[in-house]
Amino acid sequence: MIVKRLAREARLALPHVRFAVAVLPTDWARAPGLISELHERHDPVLALHFGVATSMRGFRIETEARNFCRMSPDAAGGLPASNCICEGGASALSTSIPATAVAQHLEAQGFEARLSDDAGGYLCNAVFYHSLLEASTRRDRCRVGFIHIPVEAGEPEAVDRTVAGALEVLKFSLHHAPQVATLTSV
């Protein structure tokens, strides 16, 4: 719901930008292939991923994805095939958006934000790692970021504020990569 609403508001605020939007399944087997498919189909200059973190306040800008999967079942009950995302891959990949500047921008706009070097061991981290890996193989490299967004269930004002903050992240990140954006959510 949040990413779809963000995409609608982003298209109104930035009509000169082409957006591709996807809500990824919380599925160890399907999400990585969809990341590759989105990069292939849209060849974005920015792939900005959002994940919900209900237990936190403010926005958490992830600075790295680790080549690690926690053996936790996905929404369909499936487990990751391995403890690592990519056999022989780097132990960690760094975000390619200016994470510190994004956090500072959010704070300047009145949003709580912090940096994190741990996207977790679940699908948020896996999607982030796959997207960074996919972007690194492209000739015209795209910037990749992952933002954990706060959502308080049942509070429309909180959802409005989350969408407004996510739009600020998107606008700021697009300033550094202004042609095409791909938004996903897990």
Rank of each mutant, 00 (worst) to 15 (best):
N67L: 12
I85M: 09
A65L: 05
T54F: 12
P150M: 06
G121I: 04
A158P: 00
A135W: 00
G154P: 04
E64Y: 01
S55L: 12
T63F: 04
M71N: 11
Q109M: 14
E155Q: 09
Y122W: 08
A113K: 05
D74R: 14
S136V: 09
H105V: 01
S82M: 10
R60E: 14
F68T: 05
V52A: 09
A119T: 08
M71E: 11
P150C: 03
L132G: 01
E134I: 00
A153N: 02
A81Y: 01
R66T: 08
P80V: 09
S72P: 00
F128V: 03
F59R: 00
G77C: 14
D74F: 11
F146C: 03
H105N: 09
A135E: 04
Q109D: 01
S55Y: 12
A153M: 10
V159L: 15
A119W: 10
D117F: 04
A81T: 15
N83D: 15
I85N: 09
E155N: 15
E155L: 15
F111I: 02
A65Q: 04
H130P: 00
E134L: 07
A158H: 13
I85T: 01
V159F: 04
H148I: 01
P73T: 12
R138S: 06
H130C: 14
S96H: 09
R66W: 12
E112D: 06
M71P: 00
S72C: 02
G51M: 05
D74G: 07
A65N: 07
M56L: 10
G89V: 13
T137I: 00
C84V: 15
A76C: 06
S136N: 10
E87P: 14
A119I: 10
R141G: 11
P150T: 02
C124R: 09
P156Q: 08
L93I: 03
L93Q: 09
C142N: 07
E62V: 07
A76E: 15
A99D: 04
E157D: 11
L123Q: 06
T137D: 02
T100E: 14
P80F: 03
A99N: 06
E62H: 05
R70E: 14
S136H: 14
G145H: 07
T54A: 13
F68K: 11
Q109R: 15
E155M: 14
I61V: 15
A90L: 12
M71R: 14
D117W: 05
A92M: 09
P80Y: 10
D117M: 09
I147W: 04
A90C: 07
G121Q: 07
E62K: 08
L132E: 05
L132W: 07
G88V: 11
F128H: 10
G121K: 01
M71C: 05
A76G: 10
A81G: 01
I149P: 00
E155T: 10
S82A: 14
F111E: 03
M71D: 15
D118Y: 13
L123V: 05
P150F: 10
R161K: 13
A108I: 03
G154C: 04
V127H: 03
G145T: 08
A101I: 06
A119G: 08
D74A: 13
G120Q: 09
H148S: 01
I97L: 15
